[in-house]
């Protein structure tokens, strides 16, 4: 034995879990939704997603390498996720320069100015999307009709379900269409079924726990369900709310972002219910037809506070005798 012994404090074994493994699992879970987008929007989906990923990874590399002068860790996969989620949150017809601007904002401002992965307060993809929505409301809400249903392509634009729900109830697609994903909307928000498949994968791989998505979805269903009991119009239909807009994408992939969500189970439940509540409130009574991203962004800001007040259940604290 020529080598010197290695000495370190215990434990001496590791689970082998890494940041990469978790990030790539999220990417795998996004594949079904991406396939649906590919089917619905054909090449456009691929182009937008590829460009967004390229922009996000590229900006991260350039900023870390040349401005922060550190060793970039783009392989950890977090920038790729931001790119994919950003692409999933925009309409297919979005001009490339707007997409680039959104990526720059998401990575450069929201993520890296706070210190990079692990230190950002807001989810970069959500913040990027909201930045674009506020800056370019026209382009961000010009939805290309799905190529599978429309006779002509890109030029035709149509309203999203939530837009229709609020402003023109007669143009609503059926619930089944919404579940499978043939209604107009952002790239990744199409198919509820595909997104749920992703959720199952994430739960199976133990990347996330059920607390955040379930509490969001349950709150939305309960809240709208109660309203529907008193006034059964489509505007309050719980299933329409569950299946439409970015709710599934947000609840499964954006609200569950490790960095910007609470640490404890109790905190997660509070965080999820608040997101669900704010989402419905914005949808029903706000100026925007969709409120998921605002709700998540708002609750991101509350996460440190939630963490502060929801300490985990300590051993011996609750059960003292028997």
């Amino acid at each position: 034995m020529e080598n010197k012994l290695i000495v370190s404090p215990s434990p001496h074994v590791h689970s082998g879990d890494t940041i990469q493994k978790n990030m790539y699992a999220v990417l795998i879970a996004l594949i079904p939704a991406f396939l649906v987008a590919l089917y619905v929007f054909r090449l456009d989906a691929l182009i937008i997603t590829a460009l967004a990923v390229l922009f996000c990874v590229g900006f991260e590399y350039l900023i870390v390498r040349f401005i922060l002068k550190k060793e970039p860790s783009i392989l950890d996969g977090s920038a790729i996720i931001t790119g994919v989620l950003l692409a999933f949150n925009v309409p297919t017809g979005l001009p490339v320069w707007i997409l680039a601007l959104g990526s720059l904002f998401a990575i450069g401002v929201v993520k890296l100015t706070f210190g990079g992965l692990g230190n950002n307060i807001f989810n970069p993809a959500i913040a990027g999307r909201i930045f674009l929505l506020i800056s370019f409301p026209a382009q961000m809400t010009t939805w290309a009709a799905p190529e599978t249903t429309a006779a002509t392509t890109d030029a035709v634009s149509s309203a999203t379900v939530l837009g229709a729900l609020k402003f023109a109830p007669e143009t609503m697609p059926s619930l089944m269409e919404m579940f499978l994903g043939t209604e107009p909307g952002s790239l990744g928000e199409m198919s509820v079924a595909a997104l749920l498949l992703g959720l199952i994968y994430l739960l199976w791989k133990r990347v996330i726990t059920w607390h955040i998505p379930v509490s969001i979805l349950a709150t939305v269903a309960l809240f709208t369900g109660l309203l529907y009991l008193f006034n059964p119009v489509p505007l309050y239909h719980p299933l329409i709310h569950l299946f439409s807009g970015g709710l599934m994408l947000g609840a499964i992939f954006m609200a569950t972002d490790y960095v910007t969500s609470p640490l404890t189970k109790r905190g997660m439940l509070i965080y999820g219910s608040a997101i669900g509540f704010i989402t419905v409130a914005i949808r029903l009574w706000g100026a925007y037809p969709e409120g998921v991203s605002f709700a998540i962004l708002l609750m991101n800001a509350f996460t440190p506070l939630i963490n502060n007040y929801t300490t985990p259940k300590r051993f011996g604290e609750v059960v003292k005798h028997g």
Partner: peptide
């Protein structure tokens, strides 16, 4: 001469508590 390789947290107090 170094007789072994320390591989714990880069902190003297941690190392001193160890060995």
């Amino acid at each position: 001469p170094r007789l072994n390789l320390y591989d714990g947290a880069s902190n003297c107090a941690v190392a001193a508590a160890l060995y």
